[in-house]
Design a protein around this nucleic acid. Sequence first.
DNA 1: GTCTATATTCAGATAGAC
DNA 2: GTCTATCTGAATATAGAC
Lengths: 193, 193
Amino acid sequence: MPYPSQVQRADLIDKARELIESEGLDRLTLQSLAAAFGIAAPSLYHHFKNKTALLAAVNAATASALVEAMLAAASQASAEDQADPTSALIHMLHGYRMFAHAHPVTYSMVFANTMSALKPDPKTAEALVLPLQEIMARVVGAAKSLPALRGGWALVHGFVMLELAGQFQRGGDLDNAFETAVRTYMDGLRQPE
Amino acid sequence: MPYPSQVQRADLIDKARELIESEGLDRLTLQSLAAAFGIAAPSLYHHFKNKTALLAAVNAATASALVEAMLAAASQASAEDQADPTSALIHMLHGYRMFAHAHPVTYSMVFANTMSALKPDPKTAEALVLPLQEIMARVVGAAKSLPALRGGWALVHGFVMLELAGQFQRGGDLDNAFETAVRTYMDGLRQPE
DNA sequence: GTCTATATTCAGATAGAC
DNA sequence: GTCTATCTGAATATAGAC
């Protein structure tokens, strides 16, 4: 055993996510990531084909973590709230927003359309929406659940992105604004056409 | 007149926007921009302090163009639609979405939180939201217009970003989904609390 | 305002030894 | 799986002539 390090691929991905959040995406270099483990940059090529593959893995991990955060938020709701689909959905959406707040840079990366080829594969993307759609189906029925989901997802994603981009300049209670916006949309869903 | 070119700053910004859309942000170099005008890269430093200043100018121009597109869409609505605040707002939001479709990369740049220091200054950002808020005030009243606007803006921005990122994988009529989502939110706004 | 020439810096990636 | 050494390539930016 000439070299002690023996870094694990999963550890590299986790550390990369940390560094991207704390230092910024542009400051994550193979050198900086390797240095965090006390190894040399070229060693990383035994774990990832190239830097793009590393970043794609980071995005996939972020997407998975987001799903977990949503499910955890839903499961932590009270029994009554879990029984009521609207309340259950709102809990999940709050979990979604909290995750984005906790991981703003990597969250944005997943949905950035400036960098292609970094997109999570279709299966991962599907897994991301699945929990939301299941609950949405309980709210508006399976038939309308796809468009209803898209609107709700758009609302939450857009709110979070505008927040993170600092576009809500006039202050005010953003937690409350989020709550209001989501409930407004849900109210609209309950309307007969 | 030893050198014929004499490039205008505004032309550089416009061309930069074109190149970013067609080639991608990462492929816009000072070299490539200068080449498009048949001049040498260092000449650009007489027009912009550095590359960051150039990109900031690009973002400001994009934001202005977005406002113009919204206002144009609103003014092209029928007289009846202009008189009805809800219809007028929907026309404006359609104009917003069409602009994002036409300029996906530069639109995303304006709201990207990965690159700080490129953000349009507060005044530009304010001008962006102003037309929307004026109409929103006519829909829900001035008192509620700020949170109502934020939710509506979030919905539209989020929808467009998810579209552009290819996250609406299951196809379906996205134009219709957008229309439905916006109207659902507006229906929710009309609900008494 | 444009040019040429050059400095600087640095990142991703490969080769081959251990 | 890790190392050292090196290649390759590129991009921002500066200096000074015209």
